[in-house]
């Protein structure tokens, strides 16, 4: 007999797309962590100007070309991943636990708790997310922290919804009642009995979400409401580069490809995890 872990590992290996996704995600994370050593022109992440190399197309020296200040785009994409991943960690680090706890509480306690939490979720979900985020960042100063707050304020609802549904079906299992009969506290039942059974759904959802948070963050900065220059951010870079389309196409396309690469990686990995853990999301 082989253990579940071995079986999961075999399934992962048999799923080449998930492995590719995992490698893509890993490369993004490693590049972001070791950016100063990986990037060919680490200084270009800051407010550097090199007029001799302005608008130079992709070549052996600048693989992704340079921007209007003569900075190496590849270096800036790599540093841009730092911003993106910080955003992901910040948003999901808050939204996921918050949504999971509320979702579990709603699914487990039922009654009034469920009504309040789920109707609040419905109200939040009824608001167009981009408009909400624009409003929040417009009121506050546009920077990374405020973008994070705006996205987090919207994001928890999806986790709440998902975990509410997962919890509702777990609560119907006899082991929850059995735990209650043998004197377990609500906290024990929620955290030790129900939460472990939600982990598969949570990990798949969180992985898939990472890609979408990057996209949402890039959208905000594209609109000028996210990270401010000179900090390299993928959305800001696309926005700046778009002024030079179509002649200097690489200045918008290359950062765009950078966003695509990261999101694709997270999505492929998430899909692979979903197949592997056999969970139903959304």
């Amino acid at each position: 007999m082989i253990s579940n872990r071995q079986r999961a590992w075999r399934r992962l290996r048999r799923n080449p797309i998930a492995v590719v996704g995992g490698l893509m995600v890993l490369s993004v994370i490693l590049a972001a962590i070791f950016a100063p050593w990986v990037a060919p022109f680490p200084t270009h992440a800051g407010a550097v100007v090199d007029f001799r190399h302005r608008h130079s197309p992709p070549d052996a020296l600048h693989w992704m070309g340079t921007d209007n200040a003569g900075r190496d785009i590849l270096s800036r994409v790599i540093f841009g991943y730092r911003v993106s991943l910080t955003l992901v960690a910040g948003v999901l680090g808050v939204a996921m636990p918050f949504g999971v706890l509320l979702g579990m509480a709603a699914g487990y306690f039922r009654g009034r708790t469920e009504f309040v939490i789920m109707r609040l979720t419905d109200i939040m979900l009824a608001m167009p997310p981009l408009v909400m985020a624009l409003a929040i960042t417009a009121i506050l100063t546009p920077d990374l922290i405020n973008a994070m707050i705006a996205i987090t304020a919207l994001w928890w609802t999806w986790h709440c919804r998902l975990i509410y549904r997962v919890t509702s079906s777990i609560v119907a299992e006899d082991f929850v009642e059995a735990a209650r009969l043998s004197g377990a506290s609500h906290a024990h039942i929620l955290l030790r009995e129900i939460l472990p059974n939600c982990m598969a759904a949570i990990s798949v959802k969180t992985t898939l979400d990472a890609g979408f948070v990057i996209l949402f963050g890039a959208t905000l900065s594209f609109l000028g409401l996210g990270v401010q220059p000179p900090t390299p951010d993928l959305g800001t870079m696309v926005a700046t580069g778009a002024q030079f389309l179509p002649d200097q196409w690489w200045e918008a396309v290359m950062p765009g490809l950078g966003v695509l690469y990261a999101i694709l990686g997270f999505n492929l990995l998430g899909d692979g995890l979903r197949d592997m853990l056999d969970v139903e999301i959304g």
Binding site: D174, A178, L181, G183, N197
Partner: peptide
């Protein structure tokens, strides 16, 4: 106390036998 019909549903798949027994023992 109660013993349920379907042990597949009455035992938490994510907990070991010792962990499951620890709850009522603490009680």
């Amino acid at each position: 106390q109660m013993v349920y019909q379907n042990p597949a549903s009455s035992l938490n798949p994510k907990r070991t036998v010792a962990q499951m027994l620890a709850v009522p023992l603490a009680f």
